[in-house]
């Protein structure tokens, strides 16, 4: 599903070039659950952003579903975001002025789903995450764990093939974190490919494969 070939990412300062990713090669198949680990500043998030097409590599090739993603134009990238990928963030990034239901609905609007279908899909999600009673609340009225549930619901409501999670449990305490990880595991069993970035060994083990990064290089790649 994902093939990265000789990916470089760097920033140029006046006198020197700082590498974030150095010659990364990686293949991820459909249905995998990958945990990316590594110290701060190792380039985990950058790698995730490149895979999610929020960021571009300076060099190298990236194929998504056999298509050369590094050659996609802005329009195609938007299509990709609408149809193939869902994001989960450490800081949840819910829209404060929207209710739970409206937050979940937003990607469907961009996807062009009809209003009636949207209502049905949002209702499904709320039902599935046991949040029907909370659908008219605003994010500020929810606990962190619940907010992240909304974040996940929003990420998967459009039925993406790939779910990218940047430290999804980083702002949660461990019980809530476990809940979230179990949920991700279940989603993976249902067929969604998941790539998560995490600091937490325990949570990394929920995945099927652990990739460790240090100083922009892949230092190990273990299947569990």
């Amino acid at each position: 599903m994902i093939i990265l070939k000789n990916i470089f990412k760097y920033y140029d300062n006046k006198f020197q070039r700082t590498f974030v990713l150095k010659d990364v090669n990686l293949t991820i198949k459909e249905g995998e659950f990958v945990s990316i680990m590594g110290p701060s500043g190792a380039g985990k998030s950058t790698l995730l952003n490149i895979i999610g097409m929020l960021d571009e590599p300076n060099e190298g090739e990236y194929f998504f579903l056999e298509q050369p993603a590094h050659q996609l134009n802005e329009k195609k990238k938007t299509e990709f975001h609408r149809n193939y990928v869902g994001f989960i963030f450490q800081a949840f990034h819910l829209i404060d002025e929207m209710t739970v239901a409206e937050n979940i609905e937003t990607p469907l609007i961009y996807k062009g789903v009809k209003s009636r279908d949207r209502q049905a899909m949002v209702a499904d999600m709320l039902d599935r995450f046991n949040m029907v009673a909370k659908k008219d609340l605003f994010p500020a009225q929810l606990s962190g764990g619940q907010q992240q549930l909304v974040g996940i619901a929003r990420a998967i409501v459009g039925k993406p093939k790939l779910l990218l999670a940047d430290e999804p449990t980083g702002n949660l305490h461990s019980d809530q974190g476990k809940e979230i990880m179990k949920l991700l595991q279940k989603l993976n069993e249902e067929g969604i490919t998941i790539i998560q970035v995490t600091h937490n060994e325990e949570f990394a083990n929920y995945g099927k494969r652990i990739i460790r990064i240090a100083d922009g290089l892949i230092s190990s790649d273990t299947k569990l």
Partner: peptide, 11 residues
């Protein structure tokens, strides 16, 4: 918010 909206498919 703008960044987020882009990530979920807003042009």
């Amino acid at each position: 918010e703008t960044g987020l909206r882009k990530s979920i498919g807003a042009t």
